[in-house]
Amino acid sequence: MLKECRKGHIFGVPVADGQVALGQVIVPLASNFLAAIHRDLIRADETDVLAARLDTPVIFAETMDFKIREGVWPILGSRGIPGSIRLPNYTVWVEPPGEYRIQSIDGTVGSSAISAETAGEMRHQKSYAPAFIEAALQALHGFRPWVSAFDEIILPSGK
């Protein structure tokens, strides 16, 4: 049975040896979602997952929802989004008129131009495969080698 991905859902991302990293759906987006995934690993059979701290994610990335929908990343509960979580803004080039603008997570593009310097400090919106997120978590915990591509989704305070 397919599961629906909803804002606030807490899910488990399998990492290794029966351990999962907890994630939370921050914003559902069609067949993707913005995820905040946390460093600490818990046993997959632990009962009190909602007692975990979910306010300091190590990974903050958009990914596809099929692992949740198929139950591979099981939904373990639900709770409100921590106030410390801020939605990202991205940069996008708008042609015409040929200028950078801010784009929100839902794809809405702002009406005012931003400078090339400001745009250069921002990221473009990008989605990552669930397998990439799993691999980054495994590398973060020493279960596989680290590759520099993981730097794209690991928050600066995460390593």
Rank of each mutant, 00 (worst) to 15 (best):
M1D: 02
L2C: 00
K3I: 01
E4A: 06
R6M: 08
R6T: 05
K7E: 14
I10D: 05
F11P: 03
F11V: 11
V13S: 08
V13T: 05
A16K: 11
A16F: 08
D17Y: 11
G18L: 11
G18E: 06
V20C: 01
I26F: 13
V27Y: 14
V27E: 15
A30E: 09
S31N: 10
S31P: 00
F33M: 12
F33I: 01
A35P: 00
A35C: 10
A35T: 00
A36E: 02
I37F: 04
H38V: 08
R39Q: 11
D40Y: 08
L41T: 02
I42D: 07
I42P: 03
R43E: 15
R43N: 13
A44P: 00
D45K: 09
E46D: 14
E46K: 12
E46L: 15
T47P: 00
D48T: 15
D48E: 15
V49F: 15
L50C: 14
A51E: 08
R53I: 03
L54G: 11
L54E: 03
L54D: 07
T56V: 12
T56K: 14
P57D: 07
V58F: 09
A61T: 02
A61W: 02
A61S: 12
E62H: 02
T63A: 15
M64A: 12
F66N: 03
R69W: 10
R69I: 05
R69A: 14
R69H: 11
E70I: 03
E70G: 10
W73I: 07
I75R: 04
G77Q: 00
S78N: 03
R79W: 03
R79M: 01
R79D: 01
I81D: 03
I81H: 12
P82V: 09
S84W: 00
I85Y: 09
L87E: 12
P88T: 05
P88Y: 09
T91P: 00
V92P: 04
E95S: 06
P97M: 00
G98D: 01
E99I: 03
E99P: 02
E99M: 08
Q103I: 05
D106Y: 08
G107T: 14
T108W: 13
T108H: 10
V109M: 01
G110E: 11
A113D: 04
I114G: 03
S115G: 11
E117D: 14
T118A: 15
T118K: 15
T118V: 14
G120R: 12
G120I: 14
M122C: 06
H124R: 13
H124G: 07
H124V: 14
H124K: 11
Q125L: 05
Q125F: 04
K126F: 09
K126M: 14
S127V: 09
S127L: 01
Y128P: 06
Y128C: 07
A129E: 14
A129Y: 07
P130M: 10
I133D: 11
E134Q: 14
A135R: 13
A135E: 15
A136I: 07
A136F: 13
A136Q: 12
Q138D: 08
A139W: 01
L140F: 08
G142K: 04
F143Q: 05
F143G: 02
R144D: 12
W146L: 02
W146G: 06
A149T: 07
A149Y: 06
F150T: 06
D151I: 08
E152G: 03
E152T: 06
I153W: 10
I154Q: 05
L155T: 10
L155Y: 07
L155F: 04
P156W: 00
G158C: 09
